[in-house]
Amino acid sequence: MIQRWLPFPRMFACMLAMWLLLNQSLAPAHVLFGLLLAVYGSRLLVRLDMPNGAVRRPWAALRLSMLVLIDIIRSNIAVARIILRIGGRHKTAGFLEIPLTMRNPNGLATLACIITATPGTLWVDYDSSRGVLLMHVLDLIDEEQWIRIIKGRYERLLLEIFE
């Protein structure tokens, strides 16, 4: 019964939270309308035929978001320095291939968002037959270091969360 009415309980909770946040209120009228909207909205997702993904370890997810936040701040500074040409050293930008172990579509989508949202790195292409990610890096000092960052820092945690 619950499955039929609420096929995506987490999405339902997110939509309700979004509605209440938008209206900045916990008044019964807003809660009621938010509930209606969230039930209908999350049921629409059934038609999209989304890959089902259970987020397993909320603790790992929290650690990943903190890590990404710190990295985004750090790479903001790094990219700003490159653009303003502070620091002297000549930067070479280039493409980089990274073999991934992760196959989960939700995990890959999350990794794509992380890499693209972080200044200085860019998700270009993913070859699903070989499982190889092609990315572009603004400051390609040494390939090994980037592979370590993507595989060691992000992919390991994403594997814990999604697989």
């Binding site: 985004i72 701040i73 903001n76 990219v79 653009i83 930008a93 200044p119 603004l138």
Partner: peptide
């Protein structure tokens, strides 16, 4: 400024992410 200063397309895509993140 990065959109002007960086030289190739793939490099330029990195620049606007400064505004959209931090």
């Amino acid at each position: 400024v990065g959109l002007i200063r960086l030289t190739t397309f793939y490099q330029r895509v990195h620049a606007p992410t400064l505004g959209t993140t931090l």
